[in-house]
């Protein structure tokens, strides 16, 4: 009985870990029908049915998000939106979304373009790569879970990265009442 419990827990953990770490090189065809789920307004007159939001499988996948970051730079998204702070285009690290924050909206923005300057990348970026970029873009504003999102780009700051600075000496905990021995050089 006990062994079953342990086994199923391990199996569950493995499965969860799989989603985060999995690297699918053949993408499911389902990803290629995004437009149906796009809506640009929260107002639905007459109680019309609200389209069901599409889930982007890469958003639970650290590899997909990191690929999205790489592609975001390669396709020159970075030239207009910088590392999320914006420039020619609007920022992506804040919570303001002109054309919607849902994965399907961001997908449509990239593929269809938007009228005030966002180019249409239809035919330029393969669909699966667009979904990876969508995952990365949404991670910039903290919409993805932390275990798949990378840290914010900060290497341009003058201070050194945390990992490159020397580690502090850990304070050794001592039992109460014991005197701290004198430090010997």
């Amino acid at each position: 009985m006990k062994i079953h419990l342990i086994l199923s827990t391990v199996l569950l953990l493995v499965l969860v870990a799989c989603t985060r770490e999995t690297r699918d090189f053949q993408q499911p065809a389902a990803l290629s029908e995004p437009a149906s789920g796009v809506h640009m307004s929260e107002l639905h007159p007459g109680g019309a049915p609200v389209p069901k939001p599409i889930t982007n499988p890469f958003e639970s996948n650290a590899y997909g998000v990191s690929e999205g970051k790489r592609l975001y730079e390669s396709y020159n998204c970075v030239g207009c939106h910088a590392h999320g702070g914006g420039g020619i285009g609007p920022p992506l690290i804040d919570l303001k979304w002109i054309y919607g924050a849902e994965p399907a909206n961001v997908y449509a923005t990239i593929v269809e373009g938007r009228p005030n300057g966002m180019p249409s990348f239809r035919g330029k970026i393969p669909e699966n790569q667009v979904w990876e970029i969508v995952a990365y873009v949404r991670s910039l504003s903290g919409q993805l879970s932390k275990d798949v999102s990378g840290g914010r780009e900060d290497h341009m700051y003058g201070k050194k990265a945390e990992s490159s600075t020397p580690k502090e000496n850990p304070k050794i905990s001592r039992p109460l009442g014991n005197p701290v021995p004198e430090h010997k050089q």
Partner: peptide, 20 residues
């Protein structure tokens, strides 16, 4: 002045080609 006109986010130091 792009940071104001374009409502940019200077938490990213590279915004507006680094001007923000």
């Amino acid at each position: 002045g792009a940071i104001v006109a374009g409502r940019l986010d200077a938490r990213d130091p590279t915004a507006a080609l680094g001007f923000a």
